[in-house]
Amino acid sequence: MKTRIIGAIVALVLAIVGTVVLVGYVRGADQRAAEGAEFVDVYVVDENIPEGTPAEEIEELISRTELPAISVAEDRVTDLADLVGLVTAAELLPGDQLREDRFIDPAVLAAQGDVPVPEGMQEVTVALEVQRVVGGAIQPGSRIGIVVTNKLQPGPPTQEGAATTIPGTRFIDNQVLVTRVKAGSTYTPEEGEETTSAVQNIMVTVAMTAPQIEKLVWAREMQEDDLAGVWLTLQNEGTSVDGSQLIGPANILP
């Protein structure tokens, strides 16, 4: 009996010693690994950053720290200047590393989502350059105004009585409901054109009645031949259109 008890005690002691030695070895290995690890600078989120927040407004919500390179995301943000003009594509939570794929062009973000079409109306889509759609600020659910320039507006006849045309600009619709927005194609004009900069189109889908659609489609068709132009404005419930009138060469200046 005594022999069994002594054997059990010896086994217990050996187990404890073995555990201590193993833990010490593991800790030493971790320390040796850390001493030889490469550390890099990383931006980490300190406070919740909502979706759609401009990159220029997040500096006070993040901090810079050092982490082992092995635990850092490959697409981490290394320079906040690279994010200028972009917005967060999703909510960023405390502890998140600041990654490039979490930021997006505001025009692309606006393309997400859709809105039901009111009864009796139908949808139509127009593709317009970004500067013609309030810089991409229009989103599904927005209410917009539509301004059309008609370069074929009848003008005063010549001395010989021949017909003439002059450009005229006017709102053709207000409080139009936007149901969808999508980023369109980006193209670079060919040499010899007025500009060689890349131009981004945005596809805006609106809900309209049949007569409204006819006017918009006519204007957009004429724009293709440089005989008209379409611009969209961003409106709200309190937007006033008082004083709207046909504007042309005769009354553009006071």
Score class of each variant (00 low, 15 high):
A37K: 02
V42E: 01
E119N: 14
L67M: 11
D79N: 15
D96L: 03
A110D: 03
L92W: 04
E57K: 09
T78M: 12
A110F: 09
V77H: 00
G85L: 07
V130L: 07
L86H: 06
D82W: 07
I70N: 14
V40A: 08
G113H: 07
S71T: 13
D114S: 14
M121N: 15
D46F: 10
V117D: 01
E60I: 03
P54R: 06
T65Y: 12
A111K: 00
G135E: 00
P50R: 03
I104M: 08
T53C: 04
T78Q: 13
V124T: 12
V117N: 08
D75W: 08
T78L: 14
D105E: 12
L86T: 11
Q97M: 06
V45H: 10
V115M: 14
L128Y: 07
G141M: 02
A73G: 13
L83T: 09
E91Q: 08
V117S: 06
Q31A: 14
T125S: 11
Q131G: 07
P68G: 12
D114G: 07
A107Y: 12
L83K: 13
L67P: 08
Q97C: 04
V84D: 15
V124E: 01
R143H: 12
E47I: 06
T88Q: 06
V44S: 10
G52E: 00
D114Y: 11
L80K: 06
P116F: 09
R102S: 13
G52N: 02
V108S: 13
T125F: 04
A89P: 02
S142I: 00
M121A: 14
V130C: 03
L128K: 05
E123D: 00
A127M: 04
F39I: 01
A37R: 08
G120F: 08
T125D: 03
Q131R: 09
E129R: 13
I138Q: 02
V84R: 14
G136E: 01
D96M: 08
E100H: 14
A90L: 07
I70E: 15
A89F: 10
D75E: 03
L61M: 12
L109T: 00
V72Q: 02
G85P: 09
A127T: 14
V45S: 04
V133N: 04
T88P: 09
L86N: 11
I58C: 05
T88F: 06
R64F: 03
V87K: 12
A111R: 03
